[in-house]
Design a protein around this nucleic acid. Structure first.
Length: 260
DNA sequence: ATGGTTGGTTACCAA
């Protein structure tokens, strides 16, 4: 089976492109971020027609997460439900096709001296606590999403320029290490050692054409799923432009193949 | 150093 993650940057602007990609790529489970839509307006029927059931957790204008699956999908919970601030729709926990899926839209962080950066680090600490309290590293679990962190030097085009900025800051790396330290592996690195594999490129400066990007969309797997993982690929096809009049998301899908 | 682009809003926006 194939499981995927994609920050679509508005499911309204990308509805046809997302549907076409589902048909072409044929993933079994997909975690989506930045849907930017309230649950009542999400056209779940359009995707149902394409063969996908869905759980959505959105809000107006900002954020928003969803999980699609070819099979029955059960909601475990939306938001961390830990007594903290759950106003932003960034986290969705579901179970489908025999695996647990945590769909994450990690805060961007803006700049290291901003309140938003503190919020990003706190959010990551809450994710770690959520794993401690609600999940088991011995069970099949995929934590997927837009982490807004490039794990190491291979994952961005200019590490030195980025080191004191967001997405490649030591504090972010420490927070990510706390999460993987719980019992998760960065699935792409099980199969690919090389640098220059990115999942996001800035809309500006012809960044995609010059491959000036970052790998910030991650599929983290617990041991039982890591053992089943045969490959991970970044599918750049939607970024190339999916047809006349369609604009791509600044992120592109990441897909993991799992043995049965 | 600055500014460039997008989506959704009409905001000294967030990414």
């Amino acid at each position: 089976m194939k499981i995927a993650t994609w920050n679509v940057n508005s499911v309204r602007a990308r509805q046809d492109q997302l549907r076409d990609w589902l048909v072409a790529a044929g993933p079994d489970v997909v975690a989506l971020q930045e849907t930017k839509i309230e649950d009542g307006l999400f056209r779940r029927d359009v995707f149902k027609k394409a063969g996908y059931r869905s759980k959505v957790h959105g809000q107006k204008t900002y954020n928003g997460v969803a999980v699609f699956s070819r099979e029955r999908i059960e909601l475990v919970g939306a938001g961390f439900r830990d007594g903290g601030n759950d106003e932003e729709a960034r986290f969705l926990d579901v179970e489908t096709m025999g695996i647990r899926v945590l769909c994450c839209y990690v805060p961007n962080g803006q700049s290291p001296d901003s309140d938003k950066f503190t919020y990003k680090l706190e959010w990551l600490a809450r994710l770690r606590r959520y794993l401690d309290e609600h999940c088991d590293p011995e069970k099949p679990l995929a934590v997927m999403g837009d982490f807004n962190i490039a794990p190491d030097e291979r994952d961005l085009h200019d590490p030195e320029a980025q080191r004191e900025l967001t997405h490649f800051h030591p504090d972010e790396h420490a927070a990510l290490a706390e999460i993987t330290g719980w019992g998760l592996v960065d699935a792409l690195r099980l199969h690919h050692e090389e640098g220059g594999i990115y999942s996001w490129w800035d809309y500006r400066q012809m960044a995609f054409q010059r491959n000036l990007g970052m790998r910030i969309d991650l599929i983290l797997l617990s041991a039982p799923l890591a053992e089943r993982c045969t490959d991970v690929v970044v599918d750049k096809s939607p970024r190339h432009g999916a047809g006349a009049g369609t604009k791509p998301s600044d992120h592109t899908p990441v897909i993991a193949e799992l043995r049965d």
